[in-house]
Each structure stands twice: as structure tokens, then as C-alpha cells.
Design a protein around this nucleic acid. Structure first.
Lengths: 204, 204
DNA sequence: GTGACTTTGTGAATGTGAACACAAGCACTA
DNA sequence: TAGTGCTTGTGTTCACATTCACAAAGTCAC
């Protein structure tokens, strides 16, 4: 396995491949060619092969890739080979949607903690997880949770982020449109629905 | 104004600039330099200037950019200078979150129609919009709605997309992780929460 | 084992975007 | 009007990503 100098764009595509593989394996197949996989994920076959070649030789010429093995390798590269505990902050509509979302399983994510500042919500159970007060964020470090999802109103986003950093969280998925400032050791990925939507008219 | 060969990445950043400008103008300023704007949007000053230079000379050397004028130009480029009617399909947790989201105003979006297939939800009003049956999707074409947001379970996503295409929708923002197949005249932007989250551990 | 066929893996070419440095232009002061 | 201080606009360089073409390596049938 080479692991050297993996392009950012390749990392961005790996989860997509993983999803495609899961879909294909549900059809009972055990092996897949780059062009078959390409149909599923809308990426060119040569792009797929190039991406995989950054890590090592996973395929068999004349046959294709063993689905199970390939999926395992990708998970290992993305450090998804262990179950990851994730915290959710903000249990409004968006938070509830995230909580109910079943797509995280493929990647080994497990939401094991949920926080909100609304007293009416605190204590209530959602998906077997009891909602806690925001003031309990500090305890996350001791609970082996190293990732968090921020789904609070934008005014509160920075404060929550600060608390998460203090608690030792290492990665944040931020749904608020506000820019969040954190030490640069900590990785933040921001999803802003409105900015994505705003691109659409340009292409119409 | 030049308008020739605008890099995709620039188009992706324009809505971000627009948001930054809105934020800054709320501070009562009327003019801003590229480096001041850079602080707000986390993009390098020279990148900002380069991006703007693709369209024309908006700034004044020694001074900066007139906020109001720049915002107007960006809106024009992104075709956001008119109010755009948007339909929302799927009023579950995610759909409700989108409905309640106030960030669309900056870009001139207005959600004027909402659809669901749950009889319990049909007829109910959310944000002054009455939820309609999915079977009414066909009527969108006559209502001058040309964009839609898909927030339904992934099994239903393709069917909904097909209906939207038949109704004459030209742009789709897709929240389901399933790949959606549409005529290539129609622009689809997909946001898959799980794939974004899945990148996070790699960088930790 | 041989030939026909498939599919991978990758060096090289091409394309695209980011980073940079600096000349050109404007405001303001005296 | 001349001088000083800022900030823009952009040609150039550099870094990264995509595309392509094809040799290498496997399967399968006989």
C-alpha cells in the first residue's frame, strides 16, 4: 500500500465509491469492473482506476475489483474501519433530520450524543439517544467522541464550536452558514444549503 | 463586462462573496477592500480580485469595492437579480428545516410550493405555504416555478425527479444520496451529508 | 499451451485553477 | 501639481487534477 500524496479530489470521491460498492453488493455480485462502478457513481472509469492506483493494486486484470476487499481498503484509507462516535449539537428540524438519517451506517458513524439548549427538549429520547443540555458539551472528551455536527442557528454556531474545541473534538461538520473559527489542527467541513442553491440559476 | 469563460470554482465562490457582502453592509460600511472581504469569507485577497476580474472592473484603486454595486453585479451574474420561485418536495424533518431556513432571502429565493405524499401533512400550512399532494407536481410549470429542492427518502427521489422534469423544472437541488438521472439540459446539484461527513476522519 | 478477449495500472499530455508580484490608478494632503 | 500611501487588476508561474492511450496481466475455451 502506497498512501503517498493522495489528491484531495480523490479523497472527496472515495466515500462516493464506497456507497456505490454497497449498492452493487446488494445485488449479490462479488466483483465489479471500473466501468460498471462508473455507471453507478457517475465518474469516468479511468478516473476511478487512477484514484485506486494511488493506494495500491486492488484489482485483478481481466476480472475487476473484489467488492468486499475494495470496500475494506477504502474504509481503511478513510479511517472508517472502526465505529466512530459522533455528537450532534442542535436538535431542531435539521438536527432531527440528521438524527433520523440512516445513511451514516455505511460509513460506521454512530450518533451517541445529542445536545440542545431548549429545556423542553432536554431529557427527551431520540433514536435511543437522550438529549442533553448544551452545558454538558465539556464531557465529550471523556466519552471518546471525536467528531461533531453543528446544526444550531448561526448566531450560536461559534460558541458551540468553541465548546467543542475545548472538549477535544477533532472534526466538525458545520451546517450553519456562518464561518467558524477554530485552531487549524481541527478540520471543519461546512455545508451551506443556500450557497449551493444560489449556484443553480447560473447554470439554468 | 466580459462574462467570458468563468471558471467553475469562481461561480462556486460568488454566493459566498455575496453573503460576506451582506454581512459587512450590516455594519454600516459602504465600501470594502479585497483583504477586508477576505477576512469574512476565508478566501485569499488575490483570489477574490482575480474572480472579480473575470467580469469587469468593479473596484476603485486605492479605495476598494462599493458594496452595494458589487452585490448587484454578482446577483446579475448569478441570475439572482429577480425573485425566484422554488418548490420543495418532501416536508419531513429535513424539508421542514429547509422551509424554516431564513438564509434564502439573501439570494432572492422564495419557496412558494411544498409537496408531500403523507395525507396527514397535505393541506397543512407551513410558513404560509400549503402543503400539496405529490400528484400536483405537474402543475408547477404553469406557476412559473423553475427550481426545486428534493428532500424525500432516497427510494422516492428518482420518481420525484422524473415528475419535476415533466413539469418543466430546470434546476434541482437534491438532498438524497441516490444518484438522480435527468436530461442533461437540467442542472442537478446533490448534497449528500454522509459523504461529506465521511471525509472528516481522514483529515483528523 | 495458445489465442482471443477483458480489464487493470500508469506514464505522459493536456487542462484548469491557485498563488504571486507588481505596474497602474485613485485619493488625499499640502 | 507633485508626492505619498493604498488598493485594484492582471500577466506569469506554479501546482494540481483530468484525460488518454496502451502495455501488462489476468481469464476462458479448446
Amino acid at each position: 500500500m502506497r498512501y503517498s500524496k493522495i489528491p484531495n479530489e480523490t479523497v472527496r470521491r472515495l466515500p462516493v465509491y464506497l456507497r456505490g460498492l454497497t449498492l452493487i453488493s446488494q445485488q449479490g455480485l462479488s466483483s465489479v469492473s471500473s466501468s460498471k462502478l462508473a455507471d453507478f457513481v457517475s465518474v469516468n472509469p479511468w478516473q476511478i482506476r487512477k484514484d485506486f492506483s494511488y493506494f495500491g493494486d486492488f484489482g485483478t486484470r481481466g476480472v475487476g475489483y473484489n467488492i468486499e476487499n475494495l470496500a475494506r481498503q477504502i474504509k481503511k484509507i478513510l479511517k472508517l474501519d472502526t465505529t466512530r462516535k459522533t455528537a450532534l449539537v442542535g436538535v431542531g428540524n435539521l438536527g432531527s433530520a440528521i438524527m433520523a438519517y440512516t445513511g451514516f451506517g455505511t460509513y460506521g458513524f454512530q450518533i451517541t450524543a445529542a445536545f440542545d439548549n431548549d429545556p423542553a427538549k432536554i431529557g427527551r429520547k431520540m433514536n435511543d439517544v437522550a438529549v442533553e443540555s448544551i452545558s454538558m458539551l465539556d464531557t465529550l472528551g471523556k466519552r471518546q467522541v471525536d467528531m461533531a455536527i453543528i446544526a444550531v442557528p448561526e448566531q450560536a454556531a461559534q460558541d458551540v464550536a468553541d465548546s467543542l474545541v475545548r472538549a477535544g473534538i477533532k472534526g466538525i461538520l458545520n451546517f450553519s452558514p456562518r464561518r467558524i473559527v477554530v485552531p487549524k489542527k481541527i478540520k471543519v467541513i461546512t455545508i451551506d444549503i443556500a450557497t449551493d442553491l444560489a449556484r443553480l440559476p447560473y447554470y439554468i
